[in-house]
Structure formats: structure tokens, C-alpha cells
Design a protein around this nucleic acid. Structure first.
Length: 433
RNA sequence: GCCCCGGUCGUUCAGUCCGGUCUAGGAUAGGCGGCUGUCACCCGCCUGACCCGGGUUCAAAUCCCGGCCGGGGCGCCA
């Protein structure tokens, strides 16, 4: 018989009053009194109090008294109601087995009395996650991932997995990590961009949730060298279509997390953002005008810096909002120019307050226009043969977006640093654990 | 890469400005003892730290320089 079928979780005890159960978990606390030893056991469902009556005969009592925080134990005992115990019930043990001892002192405080610095937490990540308030973030993340998959699949998108290994450092923009691949120099992908476009030419609607890499020495609270990107690409769709999809996605995720993770949100003392409105769609030019009125000396074509984004976020009063119709020069080479004005891109960003969560738009689908985009970006067409090959054989018009999953998680959990919502963050300074 | 701030028991917070009873203090964790159906149990005692290197000084946790590490901001940034 497996352990799992024998096991009872702490949260199930109220239903087991009068029965013998086996608890498995960690020692959270031990309190010794004249007639009892109280051991608090924590498992993934919550905590339970194990009450050992002191008989003076060195048995269970000695085992219980010797327990220390984070020891791993199995407790077999009778569940009884209790008017005195704050939980309303407790376990009277007949066996306590120590499955593993924890070394002391612990690298951090798991009792919840003393807070820890982010770095201390990350250095002992799995131990820091013994604390419920640190677990809450990742329970919400799991719900969000599931909600996104539900949303995409129920809207007809096919989940795909593309390669992280690419041959050429040729997609422009950010720096790529070099990897030795059978004595060839290859690179880690920084986005699934061209792959998902090619797949949109076959499946029409695809999405991918995956890790991507950028070798930029960014030291901010919202950049990592390894990050989770949520990407879609859709054939026969316009910029407005995928913006609607993205808006629907955000609303579905917020709603689902609100329904399923209210306990975790309470633990984090965080309230989800409101989404009961149509996300404003601001043009780049309108945003520029708003900033000029605030006194920023910006020219058409300038990018918005951090301060500008904070101002814009304030002016948009804490809403999710799109900025559309960017200058083409500020967008990647594969971006579709507007048919009305070739200096304007059919591209958008989605922001929440000051933070850029996603960007997307329509893509070039004609080979000759793509070659013109490459020429403008100073890139070598030879490096794009496989992609151009697809463009030449019936690539439909298409659009898509990429969403920074961890940035969305910051919004959903109220965390101020992307490392707090990443289990094992990778940045310029950290590659362990 | 730039600017600002910081580095003190396992963790966390004081002390540094203005060098000297700092023999470095509190909380929490750990050890021992006491009290006690406890539930952040309580009380007492104990263990345990000034990032590294150089300099100034009679004297450095404290001032100066360099390094390393950390926090924040900016830049870079599909």
C-alpha cells in the first residue's frame, strides 16, 4: 500500500474526528507544558496540533520534546474534538516517527516571526517556501498558467513548443547567450517570434508558454536573464483582433485567480486590479501629447523612459491600457508598417500603470516587404532563409503578441520585484540555486 | 555601464553622524532550567556577529581609500 492512500492532510482532520489517521509533515513548533507536549505539524494543506500527554515514562513524550523546527515526521493518532485547542480539534498520537532531522540553526526564520531579505530567501529558496506567504505567490502563478491554457485552448489556439536553440544571432535587438553545441556556436532564443509565425502559417492559431533568454546586463526589479514568455500568433487576424484576445486573456486570468486564490490573496494582503472596463487604446501620438502637456520635451519618434512611463501610468489612473501605432523605427524589423503611413507600425504595447506587460502587432507576411525590413535593420537575408522560405509559400496575414508572465504575476500578487515571483531567478549576478 | 544608499550573532533590528564603560544591545531561532491545556505560550540563564584588505589615530563596528557583496533608481532591453 502506498503512503499516499494512508495519509491524511491537516485540513482533512475535521472530517476525521473519532478516527485514527496518519499525518506526514514538518514540525512547525513545539510547546512543552507540565502535562502535555504540543507539536504543530505543517503540510501542504495547513497545520494540525498533535497533543502528547506527558506520562513520565520516557516514550512518545521524549520523542516529541526532542523535535525541532522543520524536522520531518509521521504521526499516527486519534483525531478528537477539543474545546480548548484553538483549531477545535487535535491529534492524540500513538506513534511519532522522525523521518528526517533538520540541521540547525536554520538559514532563515520559518516560524514567521522575523522577515527575511530577498537574497536570503533566494539563497535557500525551497526552505523559504516553507512559509505560506511565500507559497501563495506560486499557487497564484499555477492558477494563472492554467487559466491561460484554458483560455487559449477554448478559443481555438493550439499549444506548441518551439526550439530554444537557434543558429544565428540574427533576430536583431537584444544580446543572445552563446552556447557550445557540438563544437558549433549557437544561441539561446530570446523569443519564439519567427517560429510561432511559421507555425501560424500551418495551424493558424498557436500559443506557447516558455522560457526565453536575453544576455543583457539589466539590473532592475522587472528584468531577468531567463524569463517566461506567453506568446500567441494567429493567421488572418489583425492588430485589433489580438488586442481583443489579450484583453480577454487578462480578464479571464484576473477573474479565475480572484475566484480560486482568495485565501492566497488574503495571505498576501493584496487586492487584484479592476478589469471591469474596456482597456483604453491610446495612440502613441496621443500618449506623446499627454506627456508634453506634463512638461516633457519629447519629439515624435522618441521612446518613453521610465519616468515618462510612471507619469503615463498615473494619468491612466491604474488601469490596463494599450498604446498603439508606434513609430516603426522603435519596433522590430518584422513589424508591419501601417498602410496609411509607412512611419507608423501596426504594433501595440499593453501596460499596467508604469509596467510594460506585453507587446505585439501585425507582422510582415510578404517576402519582398520582409527583405526591405531586414535591409532597414541592417540584417543579412541569408540568416533568414528558412523563414523567408515559408513566407514564399503561402504565408497568410497574421498578428500576435508576447506577454511577460512574471510581470503579470507582479500585478496579480502585488510583488515589487520580479525575483519574488520567480522560483529560481537568473540575473546578471545569480545562477544558483 | 552610471548614480544614490547599505554590509553588525543562523535570521532580523539598534549602535556608526560626533572614534573611547561596546566587555557590541534587543527580537527571533538554538541549548539548559523554571512555570504552565499551550496555541506568536510565558520567565530566567547560556551559545552566537562588527564583509575583506589597506590607511589615519594613543585608540576604529564607528573616520578615509580600494575590493567584494546587497538594496534602490537610471540606462541597456522583441
Amino acid at each position: 500500500m502506498g503512503l499516499r492512500s494512508r495519509r491524511t492532510l491537516a485540513a482533512e482532520l475535521p472530517k476525521k474526528v473519532g478516527e485514527f489517521v496518519e499525518l506526514f509533515g514538518w514540525v512547525q513548533n513545539v510547546r512543552v507544558t507540565a502535562r502535555f507536549v504540543f507539536v504543530v505539524i505543517r503540510d501542504r494543506s495547513g497545520v494540525a496540533q498533535v497533543t502528547v500527554r506527558r506520562t513520565g515514562s520516557h516514550g512518545l513524550e521524549d520523542v516529541a520534546k526532542a523535535l525541532r523546527r522543520e524536522d520531518v515526521v509521521r504521526v499516527k493518532g486519534l483525531v478528537v474534538r477539543s474545546k480548548i485547542a484553538k483549531l477545535g480539534y487535535e491529534v492524540l498520537p500513538e506513534e511519532i516517527e522522525v523521518l528526517n532531522r533538520s540541521k540547525h540553526p536554520l538559514p532563515l526564520d520559518t516560524s514567521g516571526h522575523v522577515d527575511m531579505e530577498l537574497n536570503v530567501c533566494l539563497d535557500s529558496r525551497a526552505i523559504c517556501l516553507r512559509r505560506p506567504e511565500y507559497q501563495a505567490v506560486f499557487k497564484i502563478a499555477s492558477t494563472a498558467l492554467r487559466a491561460m491554457r484554458d483560455f487559449f485552448t477554448s478559443n481555438g489556439y493550439l499549444e506548441v513548443i518551439t526550439s530554444r536553440i537557434i543558429a544565428c544571432a540574427s533576430e536583431g535587438g537584444a544580446d543572445l547567450f552563446e552556447v557550445n553545441y557540438f563544437d558549433r556556436k549557437v544561441f539561446l532564443a530570446q523569443s519564439p517570434q519567427l517560429y510561432k509565425e511559421m507555425l501560424a502559417g500551418a495551424f493558424e492559431k498557436v500559443f506557447e508558454i516558455g522560457l526565453f533568454y536575453r544576455a543583457e546586463k539589466s539590473r532592475t526589479t522587472y528584468h531577468l536573464a531567463e524569463f517566461v514568455s506567453v506568446d500567441i500568433e494567429e493567421a488572418f487576424a489583425s492588430m485589433d483582433d489580438v488586442m481583443d484576445t489579450l484583453e480577454g486573456l487578462i480578464k479571464h486570468v484576473v477573474k479565475t485567480v480572484g475566484e480560486e486564490n482568495w485565501r492566497e490573496l488574503e495571505t498576501l494582503e493584496h487586492t487584484l486590479p479592476q478589469v471591469e472596463y474596456r482597456f483604453p487604446r491610446l495612440t502613441y501620438t496621443e500618449a506623446l501629447e499627454m506627456l508634453r502637456k506634463e512638461g516633457y520635451g519629447l519629439e515624435w519618434g522618441d521612446d518613453f523612459g521610465a519616468e515618462e512611463m510612471r507619469t503615463l501610468g498615473r494619468l491612466m489612473s491604474g488601469k490596463f491600457y494599450f498604446i498603439v501605432d508606434w513609430p516603426l523605427a522603435s519596433k522590430p524589423f518584422y513589424t508591419m508598417p501601417s498602410p496609411e503611413n509607412p512611419r507608423v507600425a501596426r504594433a501595440f504595447d499593453l501596460n499596467y500603470e508604469w509596467l510594460e506587460l506585453a507587446s505585439g502587432g501585425e507582422r510582415i507576411y510578404k517576402p519582398e516587404v520582409f527583405l526591405e525590413g531586414l535591409r532597414r535593420a541592417g540584417l543579412n537575408p541569408e540568416d533568414f532563409r528558412p523563414f523567408i522560405h515559408v513566407l514564399e509559400h503561402g504565408m497568410p496575414p497574421h498578428a500576435g503578441f508576447g506577454l511577460g508572465f512574471s510581470r503579470l504575476m507582479m500585478v496579480l500578487t502585488g510583488m515589487k520585484n520580479i525575483r519574488q515571483v520567480t522560483l529560481f531567478p537568473r540575473d546578471v549576478d545569480r545562477v544558483t540555486p
